[in-house]
Design a protein around this nucleic acid. Sequence first.
DNA 1: GGGTTGATGTTC
DNA 2: AACATCAACCCG
Length: 201
Amino acid sequence: MFFMLTAKFFQRDVLIVARDLIGVELHWRGCSGIIVETEAYAVEGDEACHTASRPSAREFVRTQPPGAAYVYLNYGMYWLFNLLVKDGPRDGLILIRALEPVGGIAKMKRRRGKERVKDLCSGPGKLAMALGITGADHGTPMCGRSVPVGTGLRLPRAGSSHNVSADVRVGISKAAKHPWRFLAHGNPHVSVPHGKVKSPR
DNA sequence: GGGTTGATGTTC
DNA sequence: AACATCAACCCG
């Protein structure tokens, strides 16, 4: 397939990559959607990043290639899908938080048990469920030759750029002030609109 | 619309 | 014990 992101894309500053992922089309085993919301987590100096508390996350960063999928279970029920950034000025993990559904919508509706397209991928737990992503997909390469069939990250067409805004991250208590969430401004498929994140209790 | 609550399991 | 969530339920 042409126009796929290469490892080089993920060998840059994690904040730059998180911003640049807005507008990229994520394909996952036949389903697809445009990334409209991301969050950056920095390997160094970010208390909210898994690497701050989990040796297994640091091991993942050490051993996996740029662009690898970091998948984990949150709140005991929801799989969350992240992409690895490394070998650039600032390593990190990028949480994919929302997609605008494009392909395989019937399959997504079935997996989600929802009919409205806006309810399919407007949150990190929702999109993993819609795409059928589980812990079995932890470590999946998303760049290069060993990417699974029907899977990958496709560059947006020239001239289809989104208006990207930055905001605080959702649902964290540590390092909560960093404006490291990126959104396609005004897009109805985001999880929380710009400026609407509640302060942690 | 907005706020609250309960379900659930992996990690350290 | 904490936790990068969601849907169902209340209230208005």
